[in-house]
Amino acid sequence: MSEPLLKVDSVTKNFGGFTALSNVTTEVGVGERFGLIGPNGSGKTTLINCISGMLTNDGGNIIFDGQNLNGMKAHKRTAAGITRTFQIPRPFHSMTVMDNLKIPIEFLGIAGASQKAIEDEAMSILETMGMADKANGETTGLTQIELRKLELARAIAAKPKLLISDEAMAGLTGNEVDEVLEILINFNEQGMTIIMIEHIMRAVMQFSHRIICLDAGELIAEGTPDVIVKDKGVERAYLGV
C-alpha cells in the first residue's frame, strides 16, 4: 500500500481518571472508504475530535498527509484537508443555507475570490445534494434529512481530502439513508477519502472498504466488512455475550 493519508499512532486520550482512548493505532489510505464502529461510549467521537482538533490527544501522534497534527488548531487542520460533520447538525442558524456554505469557501478558498464565484461554487454543491431550491431559505425551516445534507454540503464546501462523517444518517428513514449513502459514495468516487461513523450497520457494511471497531477506548477489531461481522470480539462488544 502506498503512503496512508491518515496515520493514527498510539493515540491516547484521558478525561481525568477516565481513559476514553487507549493506544489506538490505525491507518486510512488515500481514496479509502473507512468505517468506524463501536457501541455507545466506545470513543468513536473522541477519536474524531482528536483527529479534527476539537480535543488534543494526551499521547501518540496523528499524521495526516505526511504532517504531524499534534498542537495544530482545528481550523488549520480543516485548511490542511480534514473536515468533519457533527453528530447533531450544527448549522449557522442566523444565516441562509447558501451563506452556511459560503463560510468555508470564503475562509479556506482563494483570497479575494469574487462573491459571484463563491456563490456559484456553493450553488453547485447544493445542486449535487438536491438542495438548490433551499439555497436562500433559512436553516430553521429545514427537515431532519435536509439538515443532515446541509451538514455534509458545508463540509464538502471546505474541499476536504478526508471527510469524517459523524453519524450522518442517525434518525433517517431507509430511503433517506440510501440517499445520503449515494451522496457519500459519489464524493468518494471523485477522490475524497471518507471515514464514516455509523450505528446503522447496513449502511456502514455496504459503504466501507475496511472497518475498525472500538470498545471502551480500545481498538478490538479491524478488517473488511465480512471479517468484522464474523468477529467474536465485535459481537461481544455489541451484544455483551
Binding site: 479534527s52 482538533g53 481550523h75 475562509f107
Partner: peptide, 24 residues
C-alpha cells in the same frame, strides 16, 4: 468576511472552527 466569520462564531463556535474560521 470578518462579519460573516463573527456571525458563524455566534451561531456555533465549534462548527465555525471546523469550517476553517480562525475563531480566536
Amino acid at each position: 468576511k470578518l462579519g460573516r466569520g463573527l456571525n458563524s462564531i455566534k451561531d456555533n463556535e465549534e462548527a465555525a472552527e471546523c469550517m476553517g474560521v480562525p475563531t480566536l
